[in-house]
Amino acid sequence: MENWRRGRSAFWLIGLGPTVWLVLFFLVPLAIVWLYSFAELRGLVDMEVTGTLDNYARALDPLYLGVFGKSVVFAGLTMVVSLIVGFPVALAIVFAPPRWRPVLLLLVILPFWTNLLIRTYALIAVLRVRGFANFTLEWFWDQSNTLLSLLGLGSYQLLGERFEPLELLYNNTAVIIGLVYVHLPFMVLPLYAALEKLDRSLIEAALDLGASQWRAFLTVVVPLSMPGIVSGAILVFIPALGSFLTPDLLGGTDSQMIANVIERQFKSANDWPFGAALSFLLMYLTFAALALRAVVSRGRGGI
C-alpha cells in the first residue's frame, strides 16, 4: 500500500486500462442513451436531440405506469417467494455436516453453468401442457384411478372422466415461477453468508430461556441475519425488475414487464427516444429501491 505513493505513475498506468474501458463502453453509451431520451424522431430512423420532455410525459401514461407497477409487483413477489424458499435452503446448508456444505453450495450455483435461455426453455418443457409437471400429475391420476378401480369405485369416475392438464405456462404464475427459479441463488448465497456467521450458542440461549424453535427463529435468527436478508432482497429485486427474457418466453399476453416494452421500442417499434426514457425511469426506480434500503439499514443502527 505504501508503494502506491512512491510509484504513483505505476498506479495510474494500471488504473488507466479499466478506466478507459468503463468510460468508452459504459459511461459514454449511457450518456448517449440519456441524451436520446430527450430527442425527437425525425422520419423513420433519424433523431434530433431537442431537449423535449415528451418521451417522459408519454412514459407516465397510465398504460406504461401499469406495466411499471406490474414489474414492481412481479419483482416484489419474486423477492418474497425467493426469501421464503431460500431461507430454509440456506439454513439447511448451514446446519449440514461441514463436509457436505461445499457440495450443497455448488448445487445452488450449478444453474449458472448453463445459459439462461437454455434453462428457460427447459422450464417450458417442464410447465407446458404436455410437460413433465403434467406428466407427473397424470401418473398420479392414473395410479389413483387404478386404486379406486381395485376398491370397486372405478365406475363412479370420482376423479373426472379424464385427466385435465393444468395450464402452467404463458401466464403470470409461470413468470413468477421462472423469475424465482432464476434469482433464487442470489437470495440463498447472502443468506448463507449471514447465517454462517451466526453464533449457535445464541440459538441455544434462546431455547434455554424457554423459546420454542419457531420463536427462537423469529426473535434471534431472523433479526441477526437481517443484513443477509436485505442483501438477498436487493440482489433479487433489482435484476428481477429489469428481466425481459423470462416474461417474454414464459409469460402470456398480459405478463409483459417493463423491459419487454423497452426492448420493443428499440427493436420493432424503432422508437429509441421513448425506449431511452423508459430505460432511465427503470434505472431511477432501481435507485429508489437502493435508497430505501439505505434508509432502512440506517434505522436499524447500521447493520
Binding site: 450458542s201 445464541l202 431455547l207 434455554d208 424457554g210
Partner: peptide
C-alpha cells in the same frame, strides 16, 4: 424433555448475549 421446557437456565461460555 427439550431445553425450553426445563426448569434450568444456563450461562454460556461465550455468554451468548443477544447482540441485537
Amino acid at each position: 424433555v427439550p431445553a425450553n421446557k426445563r426448569p434450568v437456565n444456563m450461562v454460556f461460555q461465550s455468554y451468548a448475549v443477544f447482540p441485537h
